[in-house]
Design a protein around this nucleic acid. Structure first.
Lengths: 150, 150
DNA sequence: CACTAAAGTTTCAAGCTTGAAACTATTCCC
DNA sequence: GGGAATAGTTTCAAGCTTGAAACTTTAGTG
Protein backbone atom coordinates (compact mmCIF):
# COMPACT_ATOMS: atom_id res chain seq x y z
CA UNK A 1 0.00 0.00 0.00
CA UNK A 2 2.82 2.39 0.82
CA UNK A 3 4.09 4.44 -2.08
CA UNK A 4 7.57 4.42 -3.55
CA UNK A 5 10.25 5.47 -1.05
CA UNK A 6 10.92 9.03 -2.04
CA UNK A 7 12.12 9.72 1.46
CA UNK A 8 15.84 10.47 1.17
CA UNK A 9 16.48 8.75 4.52
CA UNK A 10 14.80 5.55 3.40
CA UNK A 11 18.02 3.72 2.58
CA UNK A 12 19.65 4.81 5.79
CA UNK A 13 16.70 3.59 7.80
CA UNK A 14 16.94 0.26 6.04
CA UNK A 15 20.62 0.00 6.90
CA UNK A 16 19.93 1.00 10.47
CA UNK A 17 17.32 -1.75 10.68
CA UNK A 18 19.70 -4.36 9.35
CA UNK A 19 22.34 -3.33 11.82
CA UNK A 20 19.87 -3.30 14.68
CA UNK A 21 18.75 -6.79 13.81
CA UNK A 22 22.30 -8.00 13.56
CA UNK A 23 23.36 -6.68 16.96
CA UNK A 24 20.20 -8.04 18.55
CA UNK A 25 20.69 -11.49 17.05
CA UNK A 26 24.30 -11.69 18.08
CA UNK A 27 23.48 -10.64 21.60
CA UNK A 28 20.56 -13.04 21.83
CA UNK A 29 22.76 -15.82 20.61
CA UNK A 30 25.35 -15.17 23.34
CA UNK A 31 22.72 -15.02 26.03
CA UNK A 32 21.08 -18.20 24.77
CA UNK A 33 24.38 -20.04 24.84
CA UNK A 34 25.12 -18.88 28.35
CA UNK A 35 21.73 -19.98 29.63
CA UNK A 36 22.16 -23.33 27.95
CA UNK A 37 25.70 -24.00 29.13
CA UNK A 38 25.55 -22.53 32.62
CA UNK A 39 21.95 -23.15 33.56
CA UNK A 40 20.61 -25.84 31.26
CA UNK A 41 17.69 -23.76 30.08
CA UNK A 42 16.56 -21.72 27.12
CA UNK A 43 15.98 -18.06 26.41
CA UNK A 44 12.19 -18.30 26.00
CA UNK A 45 11.89 -20.10 29.33
CA UNK A 46 14.07 -17.46 30.94
CA UNK A 47 11.99 -14.68 29.40
CA UNK A 48 8.78 -16.14 30.78
CA UNK A 49 10.29 -16.54 34.22
CA UNK A 50 11.67 -13.00 34.13
CA UNK A 51 8.25 -11.60 33.30
CA UNK A 52 6.64 -13.59 36.11
CA UNK A 53 9.37 -12.52 38.49
CA UNK A 54 8.80 -8.90 37.60
CA UNK A 55 5.02 -9.08 38.02
CA UNK A 56 5.11 -11.17 41.12
CA UNK A 57 1.36 -11.05 41.61
CA UNK A 58 1.14 -13.21 38.52
CA UNK A 59 0.04 -12.70 34.94
CA UNK A 60 -2.69 -14.15 32.79
CA UNK A 61 -1.67 -16.00 29.65
CA UNK A 62 -2.67 -13.06 27.48
CA UNK A 63 -0.77 -10.56 29.58
CA UNK A 64 2.21 -12.83 29.38
CA UNK A 65 2.17 -13.17 25.62
CA UNK A 66 1.66 -9.43 25.24
CA UNK A 67 4.55 -8.68 27.58
CA UNK A 68 6.85 -11.02 25.67
CA UNK A 69 5.55 -10.11 22.22
CA UNK A 70 4.89 -13.72 21.34
CA UNK A 71 1.73 -15.46 20.19
CA UNK A 72 -0.74 -16.99 22.62
CA UNK A 73 -0.06 -20.45 21.33
CA UNK A 74 3.59 -19.97 21.98
CA UNK A 75 3.06 -18.82 25.55
CA UNK A 76 0.92 -21.90 26.16
CA UNK A 77 3.60 -24.40 25.26
CA UNK A 78 6.36 -22.64 27.18
CA UNK A 79 4.21 -22.37 30.30
CA UNK A 80 3.21 -26.01 29.80
CA UNK A 81 6.80 -27.08 29.99
CA UNK A 82 7.71 -24.84 32.89
CA UNK A 83 4.68 -26.14 34.75
CA UNK A 84 5.67 -29.73 34.07
CA UNK A 85 9.05 -28.91 35.58
CA UNK A 86 7.43 -27.39 38.64
CA UNK A 87 8.79 -23.89 38.06
CA UNK A 88 5.48 -22.25 37.40
CA UNK A 89 1.87 -22.78 38.47
CA UNK A 90 -1.43 -22.08 36.73
CA UNK A 91 -4.31 -21.07 39.01
CA UNK A 92 -7.84 -20.68 37.65
CA UNK A 93 -9.23 -17.26 38.48
CA UNK A 94 -12.37 -17.05 40.61
CA UNK A 95 -13.55 -13.77 39.20
CA UNK A 96 -13.31 -14.71 35.53
CA UNK A 97 -13.32 -18.39 34.83
CA UNK A 98 -11.95 -17.89 31.33
CA UNK A 99 -8.58 -16.82 32.65
CA UNK A 100 -5.75 -18.42 34.55
CA UNK A 101 -3.16 -16.75 36.73
CA UNK A 102 0.39 -17.88 36.10
CA UNK A 103 2.94 -17.50 38.88
CA UNK A 104 6.43 -18.64 39.71
CA UNK A 105 6.57 -21.40 42.30
CA UNK A 106 9.07 -21.16 45.15
CA UNK A 107 11.29 -23.46 43.15
CA UNK A 108 10.82 -21.23 40.13
CA UNK A 109 11.83 -18.13 42.10
CA UNK A 110 14.91 -19.89 43.37
CA UNK A 111 15.83 -21.03 39.88
CA UNK A 112 15.36 -17.54 38.49
CA UNK A 113 17.45 -15.96 41.22
CA UNK A 114 20.27 -18.31 40.41
CA UNK A 115 20.21 -17.20 36.78
CA UNK A 116 19.35 -13.53 36.95
CA UNK A 117 22.59 -12.07 38.22
CA UNK A 118 24.63 -14.12 35.80
CA UNK A 119 22.38 -13.05 32.95
CA UNK A 120 22.67 -9.41 33.94
CA UNK A 121 26.42 -9.53 34.10
CA UNK A 122 26.54 -11.15 30.67
CA UNK A 123 24.37 -8.37 29.25
CA UNK A 124 26.57 -5.88 31.02
CA UNK A 125 29.59 -7.46 29.44
CA UNK A 126 28.11 -7.58 25.94
CA UNK A 127 27.04 -3.95 26.06
CA UNK A 128 30.08 -2.97 28.09
CA UNK A 129 31.35 -0.52 25.51
CA UNK A 130 28.34 1.71 25.91
CA UNK A 131 28.78 4.53 28.39
CA UNK A 132 26.13 6.59 30.16
CA UNK A 133 25.72 8.95 27.25
CA UNK A 134 25.35 6.12 24.75
CA UNK A 135 22.72 4.50 26.89
CA UNK A 136 20.77 7.71 27.22
CA UNK A 137 20.90 8.33 23.48
CA UNK A 138 19.90 4.75 22.74
CA UNK A 139 17.03 4.99 25.16
CA UNK A 140 15.75 8.16 23.50
CA UNK A 141 16.10 6.73 20.01
CA UNK A 142 14.33 3.51 20.82
CA UNK A 143 11.48 5.35 22.52
CA UNK A 144 11.17 7.55 19.47
CA UNK A 145 11.18 4.58 17.13
CA UNK A 146 8.66 2.79 19.27
CA UNK A 147 6.25 5.70 19.16
CA UNK A 148 5.85 5.14 15.44
CA UNK A 149 4.66 1.54 15.64
CA UNK A 150 1.11 1.89 14.46
CA UNK B 1 32.26 -16.99 35.42
CA UNK B 2 31.71 -13.24 35.43
CA UNK B 3 31.77 -11.66 38.88
CA UNK B 4 28.92 -9.80 40.55
CA UNK B 5 27.82 -6.70 38.62
CA UNK B 6 29.51 -3.93 40.53
CA UNK B 7 29.36 -1.78 37.43
CA UNK B 8 26.99 1.09 38.23
CA UNK B 9 25.74 1.08 34.63
CA UNK B 10 24.84 -2.59 34.77
CA UNK B 11 21.15 -2.07 35.42
CA UNK B 12 20.90 0.55 32.73
CA UNK B 13 22.55 -1.73 30.24
CA UNK B 14 20.08 -4.43 31.12
CA UNK B 15 17.18 -2.07 30.58
CA UNK B 16 18.66 -0.90 27.32
CA UNK B 17 18.92 -4.52 26.19
CA UNK B 18 15.30 -5.23 27.07
CA UNK B 19 14.18 -2.18 25.17
CA UNK B 20 16.35 -3.06 22.19
CA UNK B 21 14.88 -6.53 22.09
CA UNK B 22 11.38 -5.20 22.36
CA UNK B 23 11.72 -2.72 19.49
CA UNK B 24 13.39 -5.35 17.34
CA UNK B 25 10.68 -7.92 17.97
CA UNK B 26 7.90 -5.50 17.26
CA UNK B 27 9.51 -4.40 14.04
CA UNK B 28 10.23 -7.97 12.97
CA UNK B 29 6.65 -8.87 13.66
CA UNK B 30 5.35 -6.08 11.42
CA UNK B 31 7.69 -7.00 8.62
CA UNK B 32 6.79 -10.67 8.90
CA UNK B 33 3.10 -9.89 8.69
CA UNK B 34 3.59 -7.71 5.66
CA UNK B 35 5.59 -10.37 3.83
CA UNK B 36 2.96 -12.94 4.68
CA UNK B 37 -0.07 -10.87 3.68
CA UNK B 38 1.30 -9.04 0.66
CA UNK B 39 3.74 -11.59 -0.72
CA UNK B 40 2.83 -14.97 0.75
CA UNK B 41 6.30 -15.59 2.10
CA UNK B 42 8.20 -15.57 5.37
CA UNK B 43 10.92 -13.45 6.90
CA UNK B 44 13.62 -16.15 6.89
CA UNK B 45 12.99 -16.84 3.22
CA UNK B 46 13.16 -13.12 2.52
CA UNK B 47 16.39 -12.82 4.48
CA UNK B 48 18.03 -15.59 2.51
CA UNK B 49 16.94 -14.08 -0.77
CA UNK B 50 18.14 -10.64 0.31
CA UNK B 51 21.58 -12.01 1.14
CA UNK B 52 21.77 -13.79 -2.21
CA UNK B 53 20.60 -10.69 -4.00
CA UNK B 54 23.26 -8.63 -2.30
CA UNK B 55 26.06 -11.06 -3.10
CA UNK B 56 24.93 -11.77 -6.59
CA UNK B 57 27.91 -13.95 -7.38
CA UNK B 58 26.41 -16.44 -4.94
CA UNK B 59 27.27 -17.67 -1.47
CA UNK B 60 28.23 -21.00 -0.01
CA UNK B 61 25.99 -22.46 2.66
CA UNK B 62 28.45 -21.50 5.38
CA UNK B 63 28.78 -17.95 4.15
CA UNK B 64 25.04 -17.72 4.07
CA UNK B 65 24.52 -18.92 7.60
CA UNK B 66 27.26 -16.62 8.83
CA UNK B 67 25.74 -13.66 7.04
CA UNK B 68 22.33 -14.36 8.51
CA UNK B 69 23.58 -15.36 11.94
CA UNK B 70 21.71 -18.64 11.85
CA UNK B 71 22.92 -22.20 12.23
CA UNK B 72 24.04 -24.30 9.29
CA UNK B 73 21.17 -26.71 9.79
CA UNK B 74 18.76 -23.85 9.59
CA UNK B 75 20.22 -22.49 6.39
CA UNK B 76 19.94 -25.93 4.84
CA UNK B 77 16.19 -26.26 5.34
CA UNK B 78 15.39 -22.76 4.15
CA UNK B 79 17.50 -23.17 1.03
CA UNK B 80 15.89 -26.60 0.53
CA UNK B 81 12.46 -25.03 0.41
CA UNK B 82 13.47 -22.10 -1.76
CA UNK B 83 15.12 -24.54 -4.15
CA UNK B 84 12.01 -26.69 -4.30
CA UNK B 85 10.08 -23.55 -5.24
CA UNK B 86 12.57 -22.71 -7.98
CA UNK B 87 13.72 -19.43 -6.43
CA UNK B 88 17.24 -20.53 -5.69
CA UNK B 89 19.74 -22.95 -7.18
CA UNK B 90 22.56 -24.98 -5.64
CA UNK B 91 25.59 -25.51 -7.85
CA UNK B 92 28.41 -27.83 -6.80
CA UNK B 93 31.74 -26.02 -6.91
CA UNK B 94 34.42 -27.30 -9.22
CA UNK B 95 37.31 -26.04 -7.16
CA UNK B 96 36.22 -27.46 -3.81
CA UNK B 97 33.83 -30.35 -3.99
CA UNK B 98 32.78 -29.94 -0.37
CA UNK B 99 31.03 -26.68 -1.09
CA UNK B 100 27.99 -25.59 -3.05
CA UNK B 101 27.27 -22.21 -4.50
CA UNK B 102 23.78 -20.90 -3.82
CA UNK B 103 22.34 -18.31 -6.19
CA UNK B 104 19.02 -16.72 -6.95
CA UNK B 105 17.39 -18.01 -10.12
CA UNK B 106 15.90 -15.53 -12.60
CA UNK B 107 12.55 -16.27 -11.01
CA UNK B 108 14.06 -15.68 -7.58
CA UNK B 109 15.46 -12.31 -8.64
CA UNK B 110 12.11 -11.29 -10.01
CA UNK B 111 10.35 -12.39 -6.85
CA UNK B 112 12.82 -10.50 -4.70
CA UNK B 113 12.48 -7.34 -6.74
CA UNK B 114 8.76 -7.44 -6.28
CA UNK B 115 9.18 -7.57 -2.51
CA UNK B 116 12.21 -5.41 -1.86
CA UNK B 117 10.78 -1.97 -2.44
CA UNK B 118 7.70 -2.76 -0.42
CA UNK B 119 9.85 -4.09 2.38
CA UNK B 120 12.04 -1.02 2.34
CA UNK B 121 9.11 1.32 2.51
CA UNK B 122 7.68 -0.61 5.42
CA UNK B 123 10.98 -0.32 7.28
CA UNK B 124 11.05 3.33 6.38
CA UNK B 125 7.58 3.75 7.80
CA UNK B 126 8.33 1.84 11.01
CA UNK B 127 11.47 3.85 11.69
CA UNK B 128 9.96 6.98 10.24
CA UNK B 129 10.35 8.96 13.44
CA UNK B 130 14.11 8.74 13.32
CA UNK B 131 15.80 11.69 11.67
CA UNK B 132 19.31 11.93 10.22
CA UNK B 133 20.89 12.67 13.59
CA UNK B 134 19.11 9.76 15.27
CA UNK B 135 20.28 7.42 12.56
CA UNK B 136 23.84 8.60 12.85
CA UNK B 137 23.82 8.20 16.62
CA UNK B 138 22.21 4.80 16.38
CA UNK B 139 24.78 3.72 13.86
CA UNK B 140 27.63 4.80 16.09
CA UNK B 141 26.13 3.14 19.15
CA UNK B 142 25.49 -0.15 17.41
CA UNK B 143 28.98 -0.21 15.98
CA UNK B 144 30.37 0.44 19.42
CA UNK B 145 28.25 -2.30 20.96
CA UNK B 146 29.22 -4.67 18.23
CA UNK B 147 32.90 -4.14 18.83
CA UNK B 148 32.52 -5.73 22.24
CA UNK B 149 31.13 -9.05 21.03
CA UNK B 150 33.92 -11.39 21.93
C1' DC C 1 -34.21 -14.69 29.17
C1' DA C 2 -32.13 -15.84 24.40
C1' DC C 3 -28.78 -14.33 21.09
C1' DT C 4 -24.75 -12.41 19.64
C1' DA C 5 -20.41 -10.60 20.08
C1' DA C 6 -16.26 -10.53 22.41
C1' DA C 7 -12.39 -12.20 25.34
C1' DG C 8 -9.24 -15.87 27.13
C1' DT C 9 -7.14 -20.07 26.39
C1' DT C 10 -5.77 -24.16 24.06
C1' DT C 11 -5.06 -27.08 19.99
C1' DC C 12 -3.17 -27.84 15.65
C1' DA C 13 -0.37 -27.94 11.37
C1' DA C 14 3.30 -25.94 9.32
C1' DG C 15 7.47 -23.92 9.45
C1' DC C 16 11.68 -22.15 11.90
C1' DT C 17 15.81 -22.88 14.88
C1' DT C 18 19.36 -24.91 17.42
C1' DG C 19 23.30 -27.86 18.52
C1' DA C 20 25.21 -32.28 17.95
C1' DA C 21 26.32 -36.08 15.11
C1' DA C 22 27.35 -38.09 10.67
C1' DC C 23 29.28 -37.80 6.22
C1' DT C 24 32.28 -36.23 2.47
C1' DA C 25 36.10 -33.75 0.69
C1' DT C 26 40.31 -31.25 1.46
C1' DT C 27 44.64 -29.97 3.60
C1' DC C 28 48.52 -30.72 6.40
C1' DC C 29 52.34 -33.16 7.96
C1' DC C 30 55.33 -36.83 8.26
C1' DG D 1 51.56 -41.59 -0.34
C1' DG D 2 49.06 -42.32 4.35
C1' DG D 3 47.00 -40.68 8.25
C1' DA D 4 45.10 -37.10 11.07
C1' DA D 5 43.04 -32.91 11.49
C1' DT D 6 40.02 -29.62 9.43
C1' DA D 7 36.20 -27.59 6.70
C1' DG D 8 31.61 -27.79 4.38
C1' DT D 9 27.24 -29.69 4.31
C1' DT D 10 23.39 -32.37 5.68
C1' DT D 11 20.66 -35.05 8.98
C1' DC D 12 18.37 -35.47 13.18
C1' DA D 13 15.77 -34.80 17.54
C1' DA D 14 14.04 -31.50 20.34
C1' DG D 15 12.16 -27.29 21.08
C1' DC D 16 10.33 -22.69 19.52
C1' DT D 17 6.97 -19.86 16.85
C1' DT D 18 3.19 -18.47 14.21
C1' DG D 19 -1.60 -17.87 12.78
C1' DA D 20 -5.93 -19.98 12.43
C1' DA D 21 -9.50 -22.71 14.32
C1' DA D 22 -12.01 -24.58 18.19
C1' DC D 23 -13.65 -24.23 22.70
C1' DT D 24 -15.23 -22.03 27.00
C1' DT D 25 -16.81 -18.22 29.49
C1' DT D 26 -18.39 -13.55 29.90
C1' DA D 27 -20.67 -9.27 28.53
C1' DG D 28 -23.89 -6.80 25.91
C1' DT D 29 -28.45 -6.18 23.56
C1' DG D 30 -32.99 -6.69 22.51
Amino acid sequence: MTAAPLDPLSKRRLKAWIRLLSVTRQTESRLRERLRVEHGTTLPRFDVMAALWRFHDGLTMSELSRALLVSNGNATVIVDRLEREGLVRRTPMESDRRTVQVKLTAQGKQMFDSMAMDHESEVNRLLGNLDAQDLEQLRAILLKANAQET
